[in-house]
Design a binder for these strands. Structure first.
Lengths: 221, 221
DNA sequence: ATTAATCTGTGTATAAATTACACAGAAGTA
DNA sequence: TACTTCTGTGTAATTTATACACAGATTAAT
């Protein structure tokens, strides 16, 4: 597994090959609660433990492509926009062999995706974030780091991926923000901040079935 | 290079091993200018090109340990505190074989470190950031990303690693900030902001040889 | 030694951004 | 029809960031 050669990087003359995995924290928003997609392993190690969906990087694929492949295999999610979170390299993080993982997060609408356990998975479920079981591998940390990254992004940008439907009320958007940030926001201040980003457009339609008759907004094109 | 097995992550049954490299953007501050340590490769690919020092991850080492090893081999820098920047995985980023790189940055005092070319390196030099040559591999992007990460960190925290001596004037610190951020800062506002962090202590000593007789500060313990 | 030049050290006024807060109108529910 | 609940809105107070000028200290020049 160690072989010198002129193609190596300059400083370290010996090469060591290692499995690279991608892990994806898929966040979803449903019933007004932020959830994350977990899978239950049907094989060792960590058989019967819940983990974040992940898989090995394949030959000829980038990390982004690999994680897209993983997600599509598992959930049918295609062309997800993904954010790199961090890289995990502790030598004993995988009990059987050395694996270095790069984690990503994605934001989706749970109702769009079937949750059918596939390869090496005995179960699949959207978990509410405050009801997470103890996860396998180092995925507790992975999820925590991903959520923090998501929070940071949320505070600066208008980011909600496809967590919301095409048309949504500002209250729905605010509920989403509150779920992710884990804090309550002032309605007037929130609306002020969001609207002055000038990214949303009032469709002038009203959402029926909810008191007050709130306006539906959509992303400007 | 592809072998199935029960130790693989849940979703992707096949494993693919790949070389992992660490790359380190070592920033230094000298003559009131921000510099970066580059090395000139003496081997193909990119023979005679300048690149950021890097090397392959070794068996049994974490990424941090690996990049510390690389730096120590190259510059004698030990126990550097490192910040992870990003992960690069384009399939053709290395012309000979597949390499996935994780980049880091570090902050050092150039005068503390000898610049003696070692393994696979024909030259080593501190380059001013606005005089960078075209770098080998995708290291132009790497450096740019690392610098942006450094800027972000700088704006929120008091961060200067060991770029400055133990005792320094606030003007020296401000010069450092201005070099990294690439913009001029107001002296009074800068002092206000830095001092109210309450991390620095006035040693009551004055720096000699400079007009005005500025106070020397040090980090509170 | 005197003078000139340069750098340090400091406060305040203004502008901008964030936060706190209350009530009338619309739609659903009883 | 009355009642409840949710939406939608403006302003004052606070905090934060920005702009700005001069006196004292030290070195450099003569």
């Amino acid at each position: 597994m160690t072989k010198p050669g002129p193609m190596d990087t300059a400083v370290s003359p010996t090469s060591y090959e290692c499995t690279i995995a991608v892990e994806c924290c898929v966040f979803g928003f449903q019933d007004n609660v932020l959830k994350i997609l977990l899978v239950k392993r049907s094989i060792e190690p960590f058989k019967d433990h819940w983990v974040v969906p992940g898989g090995v990087m394949r030959e000829g694929k980038t990390l982004s492509q690999s994680v897209n492949d993983v997600l599509e295999n598992l959930t049918g999610i295609k062309k997800m926009s993904l954010e790199q979170v961090a890289c995990y390299s502790a030598v004993d993080r995988h009990p059987v062999k050395r694996v270095v993982s790069i984690s990503f997060y994605a934001l989706v609408k749970p109702e769009n995706y079937p949750t059918i356990p596939k390869n090496y998975i005995s179960d699949i479920k959207w978990y509410e974030l405050d009801e997470l079981p103890k996860l396998g591998f180092d995925h507790d940390i992975l999820v925590s780091d991903a959520l923090n990254k998501l929070k940071e992004n949320l505070k600066e940008h208008l980011v909600f991926g496809e967590l919301l439907p095409d048309r949504f009320t500002l209250t729905e958007l605010q509920d989403l923000y509150e779920s992710i940030l884990g804090e309550n926001l002032d309605r007037r201040n929130f609306r002020k901040k969001i609207l002055q980003m000038n990214l949303l457009e009032d469709t002038k339609e009203k959402k029926v079935g909810v008191k007050g008759g709130p306006s539906l907004y959509k992303l400007k094109k």
